[in-house]
Structures are given as C-alpha cells and as structure tokens.
Design a protein around this nucleic acid. Structure first.
Lengths: 211, 211, 211, 211
DNA sequence: GATGAATGAGCTTTCATTCAT
DNA sequence: GATGAATGAAAGCTCATTCAT
C-alpha cells in the first residue's frame, strides 16, 4: 500500500536525478569536478547532503550520469537527413551554423568534458567509439557521395569531416570561452561563413574566377 | 665554505627542478593536477615530500613552471620566417606537419592544458591573449599577403588560421589520444596531407580541373 | 524533517561549543595555543578531529570564542555600584577580595592571556583599549570622588588603580601559580588584607596612630 | 696542535652562543618562540641553519639559555646596600625608578618570559624559588627593619614587597607595551612618583596633615 | 668547523561517505 | 524517504633535526 503509485515514485526519482545532474553540470563547469563538493551540489539542488546518496551511489556516478545524459555530438543522422536535399554548399553552411549553436547551448558540457576527459581517458575512448566514430563515418559517407569518387580519392573524407568539426570546436572555444573574440573581434556570422567556405573551397585564390 | 662549487649546485638544482617538472607533467596528464598529490610527485621523482618544497614554493608554482617551460604554441614567428620563401602550398603542408609533430611531442602538456583550462579560465584567457592571439594575428597577416586582397575580402583570415589550428588539434586528439585512429585508421601522412589540402582548396569538386 | 526539535539541536550545539571552549582553555593553559593541536582538543572533548570543524570554523575562531566567553576583567561598573554605599576602607577590601576570587576562578584564562598576549599584541592592545582602559578610568573617577581633590592632586588615581590591580595580579600569580606560596607561606586572608591596607595607607608608620 | 688556542676557541664559542641568545630574545619577543624558526634565528645571526646545532643541542636549550642569561630581577642585594643610608621614602622612590628602568631595558625578556612561563611552569617555578623568593625575602627583611615591628605586625611585608613589584610590572606592561599610555597618558615621572607614594602612604586622605 | 639538502612527523583543514534518528 | 552530525583519510605545507660533504 504505497501512498504514491510506483510510477509516480519513479518519476520523482528520475526528476531528482535530472535536477542533480543539471546542477552538477553548471557547477562543475564553473569550479571543476574536484572543486565542487557534494554538499554544494546537494545544497544548490535544495536537498541535504545525505539525501544525495539516495540518488547516486557516489560523486563519480553522478559524473558518469552527467556525461551520459548530455552529448556534445548532435543527432548527426537526423542532420544528414535534414540536409539531404540541399546542395553541398548549403549543407555545409547549415552544418556549421547548427554545430556552432549546439556548442553554444552545451557550453558547460564542453568545459566539463574537456576537463574530465584526460582523467577518464578510458571512458572518453569508449564514448568516442560509441558516438563520435559512427557519426564521423556517417558524415564521411555522405560527403563521399557528394564530392564524387575522384575528389574522394584525393583526400580522406573521414579526416576532412573531423577537420571540419575541429575547426568549429576550437574556434568556438577560443572565441567564446577563451576571450579571443574580444581581442580579435569577428562577427559570428562571418565566423561560420568563413569556416564553411574554408571547408568548401579552402583559402587558395580561386583561379577559375580569374577566367 | 661549501664543498660543491656554486655552479655545480646550481646545475643540480636546475636538474631537480626539471625532473620534478617532467614527472609532474606526466602524472598530471594521467590523473590531473588536483588528483596528483605533492607526495606522489616527490615520490615518483625519488625525493621526500618535504624536499619538494626546497625546489618549488608551492604546488601551484610547479604548475606555472611546467606551463612556462613547455608551450603548446610553437615559435610561430620563426616558422613564418622559415616558410617565407616557400609557395603557399608548401608552406601550409609544412605548417601542418610541423604542428602535428609539435603536438605529438607535447602530448602530456596538451592533456594538462585541456584539463586545467576550465578551472583556470582567467589564466587561460591571459595566456591566450599573450601567446595565442598574437600568433594568430601574425599568421593571419602572412596569409593575407599570400592570398591577395580579393580572396581576403571574402573570408576572415583570422578565423581561417584558427580553423586550421583547430583541425589539427582536434584531429590529433581524436586520432592519437582518443583512439579514433584504431577504429577509423588513416595513415599519418594522409592525415596531414588531407588537412593541408582541405585548408588550401576545400572539399568541393575542383571545377578548374575539368577544363 | 528532523527528528530532533530545533531547540534541542541548538542546545546540543551550544553545549558542544561550550565543552570545546572549556577543554581548549584547560589545554591551552597547560601547553599553549600553538602547542595544542586541534586533534588533541577534539580528542579530549571526545569527538573526532573533523567533527571539531562542525562547531568552529577554524582553530583561531575557537580562541576568539574562548576569549569572548571568559574575561579577566570582572564587571567593574556593577562592582562600583555595589560598593557605592560602603566606606573607602570597606570598598577597597571588598574589591581586593573580589578580584582575588575572580582570578582564582579564571586561573587558566590568566595563563592563556599571558601566554598569547605577546604574540597577539595588536589584539591585546585592542582589548586593553576596549575593556581595561574604561574600567581603569571608571575606578579612577570613583576613587577621585572618595579621596577628595587635595589628595587626588598629589597622585594619579589612574595609576593608583592600575597599581592596585597589578599588586593583586602579580601576587596571585606568584603565590598561587608560581609556587611562592609554598616557600613563603602567607594565609590568603592576610594577603588580601595586606594588599588592601597597602593601597589605603601604605607601609609607612602611621604617625597619627601615635597620637 | 690546534691552530687556535683553546681559550680563543672557547671565547669564540661563547661569543657565538651569546650572539644567538641575543638574536633569539629579540625575535621571540616579536614573534614568539613557536613563531620563530631555527632557520630565522640562525640567519639573523649570520650563520647557517646547521651551524646552529653546533652551539645548542635543540631549540629548547637555547630558550633555557636565554632565560638563564638574562634576569627580570635586578641585583636586589646590591640595591638594598645602595639604599641603606637613605630614608624609607627615598629608598622606595629610588627602588621604583630603578625597577621601571630595568623593565624598560628588559622589555623583550619580559615578553618572552610571560609568553613561555605557562608552558614551562616547572622551570618557571624553579626560577621563582631560586631568584624571586630570596629577593622577596631580603626586601621584606629590609622593610621590616625600616617600618618597625608595630607596623610589621599589621601587614605581611613579604606580600607588601610583592605588591610593590606587581604594581610596577603591571603598570609598566599596560603603560608601555599594551598602549594604555596613549589612551590615559600620564608622564613617566608621575607614574613612578605615584607608585612610590602609594606604597608609602596609600591613597587614603592624610588625616594627620589636617591637624 | 660549517654547510644546507634532505627528511618525515606533525600541523590545519576539507570532504566523500555513513548511519542513527 | 530525508537528514545532517560524525568520521577519518588525505591534502598542502612547515620546520626541528640530521648528516654527507
């Protein structure tokens, strides 16, 4: 004879876990994992220190949960589907803009992931294998199809896709988080345009435009 | 009246500091700064905990020393000078290869820098302003001159350079550290070649080659 | 939903703080502030080292609390009020006896205060300014009124009062703490009587008694 | 075949010990015994840390030496001899002035002695028995003789003498060290005059002067 | 004699985790 | 379920003392 239906209880439990994960992500992004005590997380979530352990076995378990719940990698397959009917040019521009927005919305996760990656290399590798590599491969296949076998033979599309992501991530990091945007200001639209353009045609002078 | 000549003592002192910095860099890359105690560092270096403090005032001072001694950013001005007489094509290929090798030699530093960056955002920003932004600007100027004003008007060379660095760093990270190299194997020479090619001409089909 | 009523918890908390303050005062009197570790204090109070920090933020905070809770200076204004209707003779005898008893009850505090005074000169000066000097001035005013302007012009009552307190404190210290009482035994009543008599009439032969 | 004659070596040794004792007294008065490291003392004395241990077995041994070498108690027997031919009045005034000057010259020792007394109660008691009690007794005998048996029967001269010393010490302490001199300023000559006068005749109105 | 590098015990303080209520 | 008092391991750092040179 539980007062609360099992499903309600489960829902409550899940909500609490979610709340704790949200709070932890925010705090860890600010002060780091080691720099944020369980008491602080619990307090910020409005529960007592001891109550925390009803929802997570250890502090480390919460970290894993946070990393599992959120993802730096957007739903790439849906994205590919979305952009299927667009030209390569449009698709790349759309991808860059979307990725930039995704990063902006996951700023905290990016910081936490960077910080904890070296310490949890094994888990990071597992996540890469599970999420990043398939996404990378799917995008590479799509790109292969778009640029044709001749060009695909000249460069590794797997690497090209990863290069594109790298451009976006590092530029976002330096621009938005590390303050380079204040020292070398470039409007956001020009950034995403430049990155897409770079991916599409590179920096080299466009000889054909001279003809 | 010391038995050891001052120069010998200084040399010994410098050697010890170097040894401690090396050990610390290695351990921090594995377990993080907070996760590695002074006792562990000292022990790994073969000295007692207290002895550590004869060489560094605090644990934090050792971190600063490690960061000062090593740099993720190679001497960019020298690099520009070096590549001055080369064509853009050669210069970019050389730059990518050089950067990749530099990262490989600073693997541990890269991990430490990533890990500690979010926690020491203020210092990271200062370092970016002092080192990264000037290097970025210098490379952008060089690139401006090479690609001519017409093309430079079409994209931000500041962002383009940062994009290039981003490609290299992230690709290195996923390939060499996060294990993507084992799942989607691509030879190193093809990686650097692809990244340079991407930066120079992009992925888009080379229309002029059709002519 | 705590099981213990808030008032009970507060009472327990206050009791613990008091117990820690008592234990600390005793230990500090024996071994000094620096010579007594938090672990020792906690252990003597029957709690673990870490538990100490639930009751006091730092070791220094406990010192302040101990000094705040106890005072070497009795409530001088109340004392003056009390003795208002008595003759000078009775008032002085009463003051000396009261001060002696107060010192006996604050033996440990006296030792701690003496021990820490040189190290915390600034705080000691502040305490002197806040507590001792006003008490000194109030007693001097009372004495001024009692002995009349003629005699008050011949000696500084501020100094006289301080001299009286000095007699009492130093005699108590040598007699009760430094063991002089065993080597030159004098009954306590004779001590207080002598000190009061000394303050009132000095040692010089009482010429008027000859008449 | 020593290069240095034994006596020279001994003299050098004694000089070093003296220098260390002087330096230690000064530093301890400022920062306390625990607050002053052996390295600081040695450094201030111009020798290396290790060299210190050629002159004193431990830090504690230096403390004992400092306390043994200096004395808060002036040569009382000589003083009595000096003042033998003076009247009681003159003798007391001279004693107070002399004691005040002695304290002023031993300011550092006073602070160190106060600070360490509670921690070294056993030694302090021994010193009291060896130095203070005999001086106290000698002064009491002298006073007995001066005031005559009638008055001596009415008060304990042992306590009276101790009271006199207490007045002087505590007044000196509050006035010169604890800053009361700035808040309730009284010229030094008036202080010593008041204390002597207090000891001689007390504060009570001089009835006989009215006659 | 003189040195100062080396040591490790010991300090204050923090915090993940447990558990009686 | 919820609480927060209690714990003790572990951290960074200091310093009296030793000892090879």
């Amino acid at each position: 004879m539980p007062r609360i239906a099992a499903s309600d209880r489960d829902a409550f439990y899940a909500t609490r876990r979610q709340a704790l994960a949200d709070v932890a992500l925010k705090l860890w992004a600010e002060r780091g994992y080691d720099g944020t005590s369980v008491a602080t997380i619990a307090g910020e979530a409005g529960i007592a220190k001891g109550t925390f352990y009803l929802y997570f076995e250890t502090k480390g378990a919460l970290l894993l949960e946070v990393l599992r719940r959120n993802s730096l990698v957007p739903n790439v397959l849906a994205l590919i589907e979305d952009l299927k009917t667009r030209s390569l040019e449009e698709a790349v521009h759309g991808f860059v803009r979307g990725a930039w927005r995704h990063l902006a919305s996951q700023r905290d996760l990016l910081l936490v992931a960077l910080r904890e990656m070296p310490t949890h290399l094994a888990e990071a590798r597992e996540a890469v294998a599970r999420v990043l590599v398939p996404a990378n491969a799917a995008l590479a296949r799509d790109l292969d199809a778009r640029i044709g076998p001749a060009r695909a033979a000249e460069l590794s599309t797997v690497i090209a896709v990863r290069g594109l992501v790298g451009m976006i991530v590092v530029t976002f990091l330096t621009q938005e988080i590390l303050g380079a945007g204040q020292l070398l200001p470039v409007p956001e639209t020009e950034i995403t345009k430049t990155l897409a353009e770079l991916f599409l045609r590179g920096v080299a002078p466009q000889k054909e435009s001279a003809s």
